[in-house]
Each structure stands twice: as C-alpha cells, then as structure tokens.
Design a binder for these strands. Structure first.
Lengths: 155, 155
DNA sequence: CAGGGATACTTGCGGGAACAAGAGAAATAA
DNA sequence: TTATTTCTCTTGTTCCCGCAAGTATCCCTG
C-alpha cells in the first residue's frame, strides 16, 4: 500500500510550515471568535465588516467590494448584512447612478459597537499573535503573504 | 514591545501580517478544498482525516485524538467519521480496555482514496504555497507557528 | 462494592456559508 | 427603439460545524 517514489511527499520542514499554518489559523480564529462573541456578541466576520465600513469613506461600501474585502461569498455577505441590519448596525443604501448596486453603510450604533469590540479584539490579536513576533519578523511574514497571495496584505 | 494606550491600533506592519494571515489562509483553503472536491470528492477535512489515520500505527486512532489532530470539535468529528464511514473509507472499532472509546480505522478503500487524492493535493499545496518560499523561509515560518501556537507543527 | 463524579462519544438543534438559480437594472448592438 | 447580454444583489437549498444535553462506561472514594 505504500507508494514512495512516484509521489514525492512533503519534507519535514514543508510539512511543518503547511500544517502549522492550518493549525495556527484554526486555533487563533476559534479563540478570537469565541472572545468576540462572549464579550460583544459579534462574530469575527461581523467585526471585520464593521471595521471595514468604519474605515471606508463615508462609512459605506458596495456589497461586492465588501464581500471581497472580508473574503466571503456574495450570498454570504448578503446574509451577514441582513443580520447586522436587523441589529441596526448597518443599513442598505441604493447606489446613486447604478440602481442595481447597494452600499452597506455603518450606522452610529454600528460604529459604537465596533469601537467597543475593538479594544478587546486588538488586545486578543496582540496577545495571541503579534506579541510572539517582533517587528522585523512581522515584516517578513507580510512579504511571505504577498508572495503567496498577491494583494493579501493590501488596503 | 508596543506602548499600549487603550486605543492603540495596529501598525501597518502588524495589520499586514495579521490580515495577510486571514486572507492567505482563506484563499488557499478555498482553492485547495475546491480542487479536492472536484477531483476526488473529498473535503479538505476528510482528506486530513484519511492522511492522519493512514500515518497512524495500524491505521487507527481514538476519536478524540483525531479531533484534536485535525482541529475539529468532537461532534464535528463524529459526523465527519459518519460520512467517511458511509462511503466505506473508515470504520469504527471499539477500544480494547476502554469500552467507552472508539478507534477510527482507515479501510483499504480509504487508503486507496487517500493515495489517489494525495498527488493532486500535494501538487496543489506546492504550487499555491510551498513554491513561493524557499527552504529556509519555510523553516522560519515553522518557528513562527511554534512560537504562536506551541505544538502547531508537531507530529 | 455501591454511588457520585469524570470521561468518551453521539444526538438534537440552530446558525453560518457556499452554490446555483432568480429578479431587477444597465450596457450593448442592431 | 428593443432585444440580448451583462452586472449586482438576493433567495432557495443543502451541507457542515459547534454548543449543549444525553448515554454509556470507567474511576475513585468511602
């Protein structure tokens, strides 16, 4: 059942780099998501949408751009914005000039919720991730990401 | 380290390292999962379970250990093993000595399916990820993972 | 050697995400 | 103009996952 020569397997270093990425990501996201839920009743995706909108000009962005920014499918974003809308954190605004399009726009309540959650979340990201690497190492990581997925660090 | 005023935001480098991790992971996993599905009708999680079992002594492992190895909840693993069991790729075997416990054991069909998928998947991981980094950079990454989540590169 | 408490897994339930198909609006072309 | 195509978002459907509760077994204490 063993096939050794035809399929080159991963070297120990390759395996460590790849499995490390999967496991580290899973562990970080699980913990940060739980923390955000427990403290502010937001998922990580919801937080990222609020963060993205809060940083966008006039607090609004096209649905499709937003989906790309938070790495979610269109339909996934539609429902995420539904949920945030029900809670009064974002509103949908028809686009001027292209009435197919919609802007998701963060409300005052949305900005407040975001700012409340931000402190918790940033501290969590620092403690679990950033604090374990120094400035130049973080820079190294960023160059790796950009090489693997061009645009991954953009914006 | 960083001066932590209450509202300290992330520096550009910190942001790039963190968002890069989220986006790179999302992009890689999305593509690799789609590729595995299209070519071999396996999800990434299913592949990893088969991989893990195929590499375990006697092709079997306790459900709880397996859940930890592939970073999945107990109930998630129960259902994943259900699905793999329906397809005949793994079987559940009562533990000798502890009749609460179950071993998931990969079948011959499971090993075959794993080996079929392996070539595709390894090539995909190489092309999308490993090829963009050299040997020493992969080693650097591995040390980062180990620092952020001890044990992340183990086994 | 009971009885209570841990441990290992499964099940009930609900939510979140993707894919594919649909509806409405705009762009293009004849 | 009007018909076709393209674009943007939403809806129908289905799958996967996690939490909490349930079941069976083991362990430990008195």
């Amino acid at each position: 059942m063993q096939v050794s020569s035809v399929n080159s397997s991963l070297s120990p270093v390759e395996l460590a780099a790849w499995r490390g990425l999967l496991r580290t990501h899973a562990a970080l996201v699980r913990d940060l998501d739980a923390e955000l839920h427990a403290g502010h009743d937001l998922s990580l995706h919801e937080y990222e949408v609020l963060l993205t909108l809060a940083g966008a000009p006039e607090g609004r962005m096209r649905m499709s751009e937003l989906a790309a920014a938070v790495v979610l499918s269109q339909s996934g974003l539609t429902r995420l914005v539904d949920r945030l809308g029900r809670d009064g954190f974002v509103a949908r605004v028809r686009c001027e000039g292209d009435r197919r399009g919609l802007n998701a726009e963060v409300t005052d309540a949305g900005r407040r919720r975001y700012l409340e959650a931000r402190t918790t979340h940033l501290a969590g990201v620092r403690r679990r991730f950033l604090d374990h690497l120094d400035e130049s190492e973080l820079g190294t990581l960023a160059t790796f990401w950009e090489r693997v997925v061009p645009g991954a660090t953009a914006e």
